[in-house]
Design a protein around this nucleic acid. Structure first.
Lengths: 140, 140
DNA sequence: GTATCTGCAAAACATTTGCAATTCT
DNA sequence: AGAATTGCAAATGTTTTGCAGATAC
C-alpha cells in the first residue's frame, strides 16, 4: 500500500471522505513534520495541483481540526499552524530560523527530550476547557 | 501616592515616557487583571478618554511589549491579549465565558494553584528562543 | 522650537463566507 | 440526477503604516 492509499484509508477511518486534495494535504503533513501554515501547504502543493485554491486548504484544515485529524498550533503570532501529530507534546519555535521543533514529555510531565542545547527566551503554557461556573450552567 | 502617579513612576523606571494615554492603559491592566485585547482596552478607556484612538492603544501595547512592561498572550485564536503580570505563570481560557484565569506554578513546575475544578480540554505548551544551529551563527 | 506622541485614514494580511461550477457516485 | 466538494471573488476583522496635527519639555 502506497502513501496516498494509506492516508486515504486513515481519513476514511476518521469519517472524512478522502478527496484528492484532502489526501494530498494530509499526506504532506505526515511526510514533512514541519507544522505548516495554510500558506506553506498551498505553496508546496500548488505546483503539483495547479487548480488548488487556498480556500480548499482552509476548508481542509478546518475539517481536519473538527474531526480530530490535526491539532492547531498557535505558537506563531501571525498565522496558525497545523500538526498531524495529535499526541500531547510541546513545541519550540526558533526566533531566528522560525523552525518549529517537537518536544516530548516524560511521564512526570517535565520536559524530557530535545531541550538540551536550546536557548529558551519565553515560555507559554495554555490550558483550555470549562471553568467551574460554566460547568454548572445547564446545557441548552 | 495615587494609582496614576505610581503607574507613571513605574513607566519611567522602565524607560517609557509616561504620557496620559500610556499611564491610563497600564493602569487599566494593573487594576483589571483580565488579560485584555486591544479592543477591550479601547472600549473600556474610550468613554473616559474621548479622543483615544485604537492606533494609540496598539502603539502603546507594542511599546510596552518591547520594553518588557507587558507580556503577549496568544491563547486566543482571533486576537492577541496582554498581561501586565510579567512573572511566569500559565493561563486557562474558558471555552464558554471566554474568561482567562491565571494559574501559578509550584517550585517543581507542575501546576499548583487554581486548577481544581477546571475541566481541561486542551493543553498547549510553547517555548521560544534559539535552536542549536542558530546559536552558532555569528551575530551580524 | 524641536522631538515625540497621537490619531485619522488607508493599507496589509489572514481567514471566512456566498455562491456558482465541478466532481463523484 | 443529487449531494458533496472545490475554488473564485468579495467580505470581515485584526494589526500595521503613512502622515499631519497636537502636545510636551
Amino acid at each position: 500500500m502506497n502513501s496516498f492509499e494509506s492516508t486515504a484509508q486513515y481519513l476514511k477511518e476518521k469519517g472524512i471522505k478522502p478527496s484528492y486534495q484532502r489526501v494530498r494535504v494530509l499526506d504532506y503533513m505526515l511526510q514533512n513534520k514541519n507544522h505548516p501554515t495554510v500558506d506553506m501547504l498551498y505553496s508546496a502543493l500548488s505546483p503539483e495541483i495547479p487548480t488548488l485554491s487556498k480556500t480548499t486548504v482552509y476548508n481542509t484544515v478546518n475539517l481536519f481540526l473538527e474531526k480530530g485529524v490535526v491539532q492547531l498550533i498557535g505558537i506563531d503570532e501571525q498565522e496558525m499552524r497545523y500538526d498531524a501529530d495529535i499526541t500531547t507534546h510541546a513545541h519550540f519555535k526558533c526566533d531566528r530560523c522560525g523552525r518549529i521543533l517537537d518536544l516530548r514529555l516524560n511521564s512526570e510531565g517535565a520536559i524530557f527530550q530535545g531541550i538540551e542545547g536550546l536557548k529558551i527566551r519565553e515560555i507559554q503554557f495554555y490550558l483550555k476547557g470549562l471553568c467551574q461556573e460554566c460547568q454548572a450552567v445547564k446545557k441548552v
